[in-house]
Amino acid sequence: MFAAATAAILVALSLAITRAIRGPTVFDRVLAGNSVGTLAIMLLAVTGFLTGRPEFLDIGLTYGLLNLISTLAVLKFFRHGDLAYAADDEQRS
């Protein structure tokens, strides 16, 4: 039955990658990339249980932290064209 969950996550992954390829704006692709990260963590957890090695969860935790930081960094890069930008106009809109 873990195999069923794995299959479901793989289907969802393929749909998210479809959106990443088709997405008209860059933000669609960032959103799809974030979803792929989430699904990868779920896949890691379920695969760990499927193969009887729950140590995969540690990798999942690391992936979760990296996912947050990388998404924020990509967004900041596309918004300012630069990662080292002062946060003085963050109040707008």
Partner: peptide, 17 residues
């Protein structure tokens, strides 16, 4: 619970498309 989670995962991805 695991099957419900799989269902909602696929629903979210379908909505994404």
């Amino acid at each position: 619970l695991i099957l419900l989670g799989s269902f909602f995962t696929i629903v979210g991805a379908v909505g994404l498309v």
